[in-house]
C-alpha cells in the first residue's frame, strides 16, 4: 500500500480489512473484461499448447490420437524445422544488437539540445506505431529490383539485386527493415531511462573533472541497466517471434531463406493442418526464449547497480 493510501485510510482502523477486500473486489471487477478476454484467447490457448503438442491433433476428426513425444521426435528429423531454427537464430543475433545500439544512439542524440528535437523524436517513433503490413508493403517496393534502394545504389554505379527475391539477401533485407521499425520504440524507452538519471550525478562528475566518456561509462551506462534489460528482453522475444514481415514480404522464401520458427509453426498448423506438430514446435520456441531470457538476465543483471 502506498504512503498516500495509508494516510487516507489510516493504519490499524477496524474497518481496514473489509475496506481492502472491497478494493480488491473493485479492482477485479474493473480488470475482469480484460482478464476474461486474455484468459479466453491468450492464457487458455497458451497452456493448451502443452497438451496439443503430445497429440496428432486434427480439427477435422472428432477424436484426437495421443502420440507421446512423437511430434518432438519428428521435429528432430525435419530439415525445414532446422532451417527455420537457423534463420531465426541469425535473425535474433543480427537484429537485437543492431536495434539496441541504434535505439541507444538515437536516444542519446535526441536527448541533447539539438534544434527541432521534438520533430526528430516523433520522426524516429513513427515506424513503431505504423502497421507492420504497411511498412512491409513500402519496403517491398524499396527492395524491389527497380525500387528505391537500387536507384540509390545505381547512383554509385552499383547494380543491386532483387533483395527479397534472392535467397542470399532476403533475410538480411527483412532484418534491416525490423531494425528500422523497432529502434524508434526502444529509443523512447532509452529516453525515459536517460531522463531518470539524476542530473546531479553528472554535475558532481563534471566538478570532479570526469571526461564525457567517463561520465557516459560510469553514470549513463549503469543508470540505463534496467532499461537495457527491458529493451534486450523485449527485443529477443520479438525477434524470436518475427512473423508479419515474413508473411507479407517473402512467405518464407525464396528457397526457405526466410522461413522463421513462427512462420514454420503457422504453416504447420494452418496450411498443413498439423496442430500437434505445430504446437510441439511452439513449445520448443517457448523453451528457447525462456532459456535465452534467463541467460540474458544473468549477463545484464538489471537489479545490480
Amino acid at each position: 500500500m502506498s504512503e498516500a493510501m495509508r494516510r487516507k485510510t489510516g493504519p490499524g482502523r477496524p474497518a481496514d480489512m473489509p475496506e481492502r477486500h472491497r478494493e480488491a473486489w473493485a479492482a477485479f471487477f474493473f480488470l475482469s473484461p480484460g482478464l476474461v478476454v486474455l484468459s479466453l484467447f491468450v492464457f487458455g490457448p497458451l497452456i493448451f499448447i502443452f497438451v496439443v503438442a503430445f497429440f496428432d491433433w486434427n480439427l477435422f476428426r472428432p477424436e484426437q490420437h495421443f502420440l507421446g513425444v512423437a511430434n518432438f521426435v519428428e521435429l528432430t528429423g525435419d530439415e525445414l524445422f532446422f532451417a527455420a531454427l537457423r534463420n531465426t537464430t541469425v535473425y535474433v543475433l543480427g537484429v537485437v544488437p543492431a536495434q539496441t545500439l541504434l535505439a541507444l544512439l538515437l536516444a542519446l542524440a535526441v536527448n541533447q539540445n539539438i534544434p527541432a528535437r521534438g520533430f526528430f523524436r516523433a520522426a524516429f517513433y513513427i515506424p513503431a506505431i505504423t502497421s507492420s503490413v504497411v511498412t512491409s508493403i513500402i519496403f517491398l517496393w524499396i527492395y524491389s529490383k527497380p525500387g528505391l534502394l537500387n536507384y540509390v545504389l545505381s547512383q554509385f554505379g552499383i547494380v543491386g539485386p532483387d533483395w527479397i527475391g534472392s535467397p542470399k539477401y532476403a533475410l538480411g533485407a527483412i532484418m534491416a527493415l525490423n531494425v528500422w521499425s523497432t529502434s524508434g520504440y526502444f529509443m523512447v524507452a532509452f529516453l525515459a531511462g536517460l531522463q531518470s538519471i539524476p542530473a546531479s550525478l553528472y554535475e558532481a562528475a563534471r566538478i570532479d573533472g570526469a571526461s564525457p566518456w567517463a561520465r557516459f561509462r560510469h553514470i549513463t551506462v549503469p543508470g540505463l541497466k534496467p532499461t537495457l534489460f527491458f529493451v534486450v528482453t523485449l527485443g529477443i522475444i520479438g525477434s524470436f517471434q518475427v512473423f508479419d514481415q515474413i508473411y507479407m514480404m517473402s512467405a518464407g522464401g525464396p528457397v526457405n531463406a526466410t522461413t522463421t520458427l513462427s512462420y514454420f509453426i503457422y504453416n504447420s498448423a494452418f496450411r498443413y493442418f498439423r496442430f500437434g506438430y505445430a504446437a510441439a514446435a511452439a513449445v520448443i520456441l517457448f523453451a528457447i526464449i525462456l532459456f535465452v531470457t534467463r541467460v540474458q538476465r544473468k549477463i545484464v543483471r538489471p537489479e545490480a547497480p
Partner: peptide
C-alpha cells in the same frame, strides 16, 4: 498430396529457377 509437399516442391523450383 499434403500441402507441405507442394510447398517443398515450390522451394525446389525456386532453387532451380531463381538460384
Amino acid at each position: 498430396v499434403n500441402q507441405r509437399v507442394l510447398d517443398e516442391t515450390q522451394s525446389a523450383l525456386q532453387a532451380i529457377f531463381l538460384t
